[in-house]
């Protein structure tokens, strides 16, 4: 079976005072090739830990992750990663950042130059290739990060709050770009976000996680990303269906947050998850 299989992974960190933190508790999930999946949850629910395990930066205390039937034991070029910010190589130009992966792999220069040119067009940065990355705005830097990841032609793209540091307008534009890339490349995309709207808009599947211990509480199938490929993004986000879902998920997250803060509000639907 291809795709990503997360098989009952648990992650326990031991604190200096001897206590244990269950960042993840027996989390299982199958992600099919070509799916775009968003992961949402209050802080401390283990979503970043989950992504780091998928990327191979952490190894789970228990269970395993298989990617195309191979157990993930470390980072690899078949699983590309887009970080929130600051992961570009500021000593390189836009071109050299994008060609980093192919260069490390020893690919022919001409081939990666052509690919880079093509990607610059796709992410809307044509003509910026020779610029040093530190001269670009935050949104443009994230475009470079996406192009750099795609230049390596990974099987899966993992995104750790890729738009979290951007202003609201840039963020909307970038959401459109991510959907466009998903449609054009057919890659599997797993995306972590703090924004409910973004999670609904960018996930044909939305995984909601809860903390203490970190676990999956909901797994929604959503029509919005596919709708957005043919309709205006604002129309999708303003549709009654989208708004209703947004309120539902939002109140779910709110309740979890209240519980963490010790608000004493009863949480519905979590105990049986």
């Amino acid at each position: 079976m291809t795709g990503i299989i997360i098989d009952k992974i648990s992650m326990v960190f031991t604190l200096p005072d001897g206590g244990d933190v269950h960042a993840l508790n027996k989390v299982s999930l199958n992600i099919e090739p070509g799916q775009i999946v968003s992961v949402l949850g209050p802080s401390g629910c283990g979503k970043t830990t989950l992504l780091n395990i998928l990327a191979g930066f952490l190894s789970p205390t228990d269970g395993e992750v298989r990617h195309n039937n191979q157990t993930v034991t470390g980072p690899g070029a078949e699983r590309g990663m887009v970080f929130q910010q600051g992961a570009l190589f500021e000593w390189l130009t836009v071109n050299d950042n994008i060609q980093f992966g192919p260069k490390m792999a020893g690919k022919p220069k001409a081939e990666s130059v052509a690919k880079c040119e093509e990607l610059l067009n796709i992410v809307g940065l044509a003509g910026f290739g020779e610029k040093p990355v530190y001269q670009l705005s935050g949104g443009m830097q994230q475009r470079v990060a996406l192009a750099r990841c795609l230049a390596n032609d990974p099987d899966v793209i993992l995104m750790d709050e890729p738009l979290g540091a951007l202003d609201a307008l840039t963020r909307e534009k970038m959401q459109g770009l991510i959907l466009k890339l998903w449609k054009e490349t057919g890659k599997t995309i797993i995306l972590i976000t703090h924004s409910v709207e973004e999670a609904l808009f960018l996930g044909e599947r939305l995984i909601v996680m809860a903390p203490r211990p970190g676990r999956i509480v909901e797994d929604f199938s959503l029509p919005f990303p596919r709708q957005a490929l043919t309709t205006n993004a604002r129309d999708v986000k303003a549709s009654p269906e989208f708004v209703a879902k947004r309120e539902e998920v939002l109140s779910m997250i709110w309740e979890m947050e209240e519980e963490i803060m010790g608000g004493g509000i009863e949480v519905r639907g979590l105990s049986d998850a």
Binding site: A55, G56, F57, G74, P75, G76, A77, R79, G80, M81, F83, Q84, G86, A87, L88, F89, F100, G101, M104, A105, R148, C149, N152, P154
Partner: peptide, 15 residues
């Protein structure tokens, strides 16, 4: 060195 840069490089296949 920001760890995200090192992670990014490993994910891009660097040795």
């Amino acid at each position: 060195v920001r760890i995200s840069k090192v992670h990014a490089a490993y994910s891009l296949g660097a040795s």
